[in-house]
Amino acid sequence: MTELNQIDLRVLATGNKRAWDTFVVASTPLINAVVRRTLSTYRLSEEDVMDAAQDVYVRLCANDFRLLKTYDPARAGLSTWLAVVARSSAVDHARRRRQGTTPIDDVPEVALAVEDRHVEKLKIPAGLLTERQTLILKYLYDEERDVAEVAQLLKIDAQTVRSTHHKALLRLREHFKEESP
């Protein structure tokens, strides 16, 4: 089976049927996985998965392959870019399907959660933490992700995540005069 990185995108963007068929066969496992994962939080049906996947392909070939032509292999791999496009398309599909018809019990709790505005929080001054430090703290505390997961995402080793986290907390404690236990 042809791999995605073996697809000739210039031929594909001309509307060549054979190239399109090859591209579809090579890309469906990825599109399927991304769409399925994205829709899993929305509790949609199998038919929705099929329709959302179809939406991805419609986007790619619409208007004479306009979206596909924006892809630049020098900037990102085709698989990664396709995954991002598929995710975005699937989220749009889920939002359209959910509009005004979903009972509140069917909406995932995470989608309904709102920040408790009554709790006064101390503002972290801009520039106190780097973007990466903020991101790592958000993943570790707000998303409750594992250090290994964050390391895999950021393409760094787990020890770097731990040390970035440690330095960020030192800065916060120093700024807010907190004592570590």
């Binding site: 995954a83 992700r145 997961e149």
Partner: peptide
């Protein structure tokens, strides 16, 4: 999205 895609890829 970043976490999901990183895992899938």
């Amino acid at each position: 999205a970043a976490m999901d895609l990183s895992e899938i890829l």
